[in-house]
Nucleic acid binder design. Structure first.
Lengths: 219, 219
DNA sequence: CATAAATATGAACGTATATTCATTATTTGG
DNA sequence: CCAAATAATGAATATACGTTCATATTTATG
């Protein structure tokens, strides 16, 4: 699965106004082409070592062409992050709509995160390093949608607290950050150890939920 | 507290062979001077936007002088990481020697991490962004001592598992990474929210231990 | 098919900055 | 106090890379 190739589908699903003329549709396809290439190169080399020429070559375009679709390298970079996270957020909201139970929602979100990142390992490499570029103040302080996603998770925890399911001696944001970082660290392991054996994500999600809810202590 | 200023003390405490001649001692002091300045500038601007000139100016040396003490910018950077983490590792080993109880050790390590990073916020900013430079393969793949520190923590978890105190359905490394990332995410919050109110770290450490051992579920 | 509009090209430009090195200053030891 | 050794200097160099733009190619139109 790849967000850029799904772009068309998303348009067809009317989550976004469908471009009226063919020209605009073609434009979007070529944009997606470059995004795909950029994702690959960024993941391979990291933001700074990836040159715009590398990306253009990977996408089989000339250097200058990239600048017909993106104003600069930064915007190209952020576009990847926004599109991917936007897609994840959509996915998650869809799935979570199916249940009212707060704890079940949390398990679902763990599972969705795990599978999304398993299917988007390249992107994950980018995301990790983006997450931590906060020390250098760039003009794009942080992914807008990334923030939205975090807020959404925090909201879930808050609900669970209100339903008296989750401890209340910590702020929702703190708990949600901890959960998020637990999941992230696990995915990090997944991505680093390039073991080819498929992992049972459903099972893993339930173990992580258990760890999150009941802790690491042996009972 | 600052590792570079403590450098002398460490030498006096005979944790390292003491340089015989004054020349070498002076050399180390000036090296420490540059490290201190570099830490400050890196934390302020991030690795890439910090220029060697910035660092030299901050340390009140000429640009070229930096290169008399470090072979290049990368080595300068890694030296900071290695010295700081080396110091943390020493500290932690010292403190943990005082108890045999595995769970108490874990609480201590959480507490030591929290206070170390509270006292080294500048460094923490660097460390966070360094942690994730793994996607770009640099000649220094990763901090040697950082790895050692992680191994040490993993060893603790393994012990606790063997003593039947910690669940055994996850690898020691996975659990230790999760704990590490929980602590990290909390410190991240601390550093980001520049609230000036001092936090009760002892209390925080015990809450986090509780969260780690017993989970987030309301009992 | 011809012309115009839209796209694509990639060499060239400008900038930023890591690194070097010839020169100057400081320290050392006799 | 004076060479000789050591350290510091910072302007100059080299390189890398993001971005531009004059030119070429492709596509659309009538």
């Amino acid at each position: 699965m790849n967000v850029y190739s799904l772009f068309g589908e998303r348009l067809l699903n009317c989550r976004m106004p469908f471009p009226a003329n063919r020209r605009e549709r073609h434009r979007l396809l070529r944009r997606a082409d470059i995004l795909r290439a950029a994702e690959h190169v960024f993941a391979l080399k990291g933001y700074h070592k990836a040159t715009v020429q590398d990306i253009a070559k990977e996408a089989q375009y000339a250097t200058g062409t990239v600048y017909l679709y993106f104003t600069d390298k930064d915007e190209l970079y952020m576009s990847i992050v926004e599109e991917k996270l936007g897609h994840l957020l959509l996915l998650v909201k869809e799935k979570l709509a199916r249940t009212k139970n707060a704890l079940e929602k949390i398990e679902l979100i763990i599972y969705e995160d795990l599978s999304f990142f398993e299917e988007n390992q390249d992107f994950f490499r980018i995301f990790i390093s983006e997450e931590s570029r906060w020390s250098a103040k760039s003009k794009f302080s942080k992914s807008q949608i990334g923030l939205k996603y975090k807020e959404y998770c925090t909201e879930l925890i808050k609900e669970a607290q209100e339903q008296n399911l989750i401890r209340r001696d910590l702020e929702p944001k703190q708990i949600s950050d901890m959960l998020g970082s637990m999941v992230t660290s696990f995915i990090f392991d997944l991505v680093q150890s390039n073991s080819r054996e498929k992992i049972d994500l459903k099972n893993m999600a339930s173990i992580m939920l258990d760890m999150f809810l009941n802790g690491a202590k042996k009972k």
